[in-house]
Each structure stands twice: as C-alpha cells, then as structure tokens.
C-alpha cells in the first residue's frame, strides 16, 4: 500500500513504520499515500500542497458524523 516495499526492515525503517501506523490510528491523514496516488493515477492533475491537503482533510473529518462516537 505504501511506497516502501523493502524486504528486511532495518532498525530506523521499522521505527518509522511503527510511527506511521500510530499516526494513522490517531487519524492523521497520509499525505504520502495521497501524493503517490495522484502521481500514479492522475499525473496531469494539480497536486494539493501538504498544508492544503491536511487542512482539507481536517475540515472533512469534523464536518460529518461517523468519525467518532460516544
């Protein structure tokens, strides 16, 4: 799913991956995945900057029910 397909995880790679998992679990959107998706599937389209992407994702997250519960 992510771009990294290295086989044997070296120490920093494993840590970085663990941190990425943690970020995703607490709900931080993944800019790398988005940028990779745009590069592969929509090479002609404008890419949002990291800032713009994160702001757009946050606004979407907190504007509908379904991202959290009691």
């Amino acid at each position: 799913m992510s771009a990294s397909t290295s086989t044997l995880p070296s120490q920093p790679g494993a840590l970085a991956r663990a941190l990425a998992v943690l970020r995703r679990i607490i709900g931080v959107p993944d800019y790398e995945v988005y940028a990779e998706h745009m590069r592969v599937h929509h090479p002609g389209c404008d890419l949002l900057s990291r800032d713009a992407f994160l702001r757009e994702r946050m606004a979407a997250k907190y504007s509908r029910p379904g991202s959290r519960c009691c």
Binding site: M1, V21, D30, V33, A35, E36, H37, R57
Partner: peptide, 14 residues
C-alpha cells in the same frame, strides 16, 4: 474509488 483522501486502501490493523 481510491482518491487518496476519503477512499484509501489501508492495512486492517490500522
């Protein structure tokens, strides 16, 4: 519908 935003294929543990 993968759009890198709302629809993002994600590992099941995440």
């Amino acid at each position: 519908l993968n759009d890198g935003r709302d629809f993002v294929p994600t590992n099941r543990w995440i």
